[in-house]
Structures are given as structure tokens and as C-alpha cells.
Amino acid sequence: MVKLHFAPHLTILGSAANFQNGRGIPIFSSPVQAGFPAPAEDDVESQLDLHRYCVTNPTATFFLRACGDSMIGAGIHNGDLLVVDRSAEAAHGRIVIAAIEGELTVKRLCRKDGRVLLRPENPAYSDIDITEREYVFIWGIVTFVIHSL
């Protein structure tokens, strides 16, 4: 990691990986040419792939679109892209996608005084107690929010 003199609060992590084609093979992984070895080839691995950073289990990861402002306190804005991992554990305090009343909805999962609550992150909305509710299930765990500026 490299510290920048002119901006001490920023850190350079490394360079972004090349765009990958459908099979997950870097486009620039060159066929071996006669004569010269390609020194850059070994370095492809060491670049940073944003997709791999956000998606640890591709098989169980889905992208959803947030709609509304009830999770604004958790940094989820209207129109944001949500990275949802269905293989992650639904634990206290996690932001989850819950299926409730036939809708997929974003909430913080909370346990409090033996109750299970779905908590919005906006004072204009109130908690939903799901302790005794039927037909509510946790669809997945939100692991990243992609917000375009």
C-alpha cells in the first residue's frame, strides 16, 4: 500500500484488474509468442478485481435494485445496486433482504428482548416485529451497496 504525500488520508491499494470476458479469463492474457516471454502475463493475477472483492460466493450472490428511502441511515439510497449473498448467515445486526407480504424488502435484522425485528434505518419509519409472523423469510444478506455519484 502506498501513502500519497499530497493527500495523506487516501491510500493506493493497487491497480484495477482488466475487464474479464465471459469465461473469467483476462482478455490480455496473451498467447505465447515465439521468442520473447511476456513478462506482464504473470502480473495479471496480482491486479485487483472489484467483482471478486464484492462477490465472494458467485453461485449464491444476486444483484438487486433498492427502491425507496427507508434504509438511508445504512447508506442505501433510492436506485442503489445491492449485492446480496444468500449463503451468508442471517445474524443480528445484518442488513437483510426479507420476503414479507409478498415483497422483497431491505431491513436491518435485530434481536431485542427475545423479539425478532426488521428495523428501517430512517426515523420516519417504524420497526416490524416478525417474531410470530408466518410467511416471512430471510431471502439473503446485503453485503455491499454500489452507489453511483
Binding site: F62, F63, L64, R65, A66, C67, G68, D69, S70, M71, I72, I76, N78, L81, L82, V84, I97, E103, L104, T105, V106, P120, Y125, I128, V142
Partner: peptide, 16 residues
Amino acid sequence: NYLGDWESLAIAHCKN
């Protein structure tokens, strides 16, 4: 096309 089109992703509601 929930899995193949950025414009067709499933909606996660933040409305209640």
C-alpha cells in the same frame, strides 16, 4: 431477465 440485464434487476423495497 432478473439475472442478465442491469435494467431488469429484482426490486428490493425500502418503503416501509
